[in-house]
């Protein structure tokens, strides 16, 4: 009788208790996304005489982002992309040189975006899904935490498109927006940054 009870308890534990930790472990297994080279970043700003749009049209490195679950709600998104300031193209040689100078390219040739988290695990369908996440943006040696709005989807070729956008200020990074002709021409402090990352799950 005692032996039967022990066997029943063991069977119960096997079916319930022993099985339960293994299932989340599978769900929690980190997912890696490899960033492809046709990813891009654009920066839009304005002065009191015009608007400018500067792009880094292609990402020239191979990096990965790792998605994993957190103990509390949300998911971690770890990875770092480094973008060459010299790759910025503002479609006007003077403005391109000015942006590179303003971002202090000589001393800090790279702009970094360090991914920290997402508010939820994306479903990854063809329909773009709106999510948010935290990143650290480092420009000219100054790092700042920002919440980013993302649109994420996966197309038929299983390419994941992650589009992140955020308005930042030059002054967030202790940068002074350029002013010309005694301040008659002023660049606004506000910049709209948008990055489009194409990735494959690996």
């Amino acid at each position: 009788m005692l032996l039967n009870n022990v066997c029943l308890v063991l069977v119960f534990l096997f079916v319930t208790g022993f099985n339960s930790p293994t299932q989340p472990e599978r769900e929690n297994a980190p997912i890696k996304w490899m960033i492809s080279q046709n990813s891009s970043l654009s920066v839009n700003g304005s002065t009191n005489v015009n608007k400018f749009s500067c792009v880094i049209p292609a990402y020239d490195r191979i990096d990965t982002l790792t998605v994993g679950s957190k103990k509390d709600h949300g998911v971690t998104l770890s990875g770092n992309i480094g973008l060459n300031i010299s790759s910025f193209d503002c479609h006007n040689s003077g403005m391109t040189k000015q942006l590179r100078k303003t971002l202090n390219e000589k001393q800090f040739p790279l702009l970094h975006i360090r991914f920290l988290s997402l508010n939820k695990l994306p479903v990854l369908t063809a329909q773009p899904e709106g999510i948010t996440g935290m990143v650290i943006i480092e420009i000219a040696g100054v790092s700042k935490h920002f919440e980013i709005k993302y649109q994420i989807d996966r197309d038929n070729q299983k390419t994941i498109h992650l589009v992140g956008s955020r308005v930042i200020d030059f002054s967030d990074f202790n940068l002074v927006p350029p002013r010309k002709l005694g301040g008659m021409i002023k660049t606004k402090d506000e910049l709209s940054v948008e990055f489009h990352m194409n990735m494959k799950a690996i």
Binding site: V49, N50, N92, K97, Q98, T102, V176, L181
Partner: peptide
């Protein structure tokens, strides 16, 4: 005149956004 020029003919001043011109005040 320069102020009015910048205000009403901004296109003439786009090329001043260039490191050739002093930008830090």
């Amino acid at each position: 005149g320069l102020y009015l020029g910048v205000r009403y003919f901004p296109g003439l001043f786009v090329d001043y956004d260039n490191p050739l011109f002093n930008s830090d005040g």
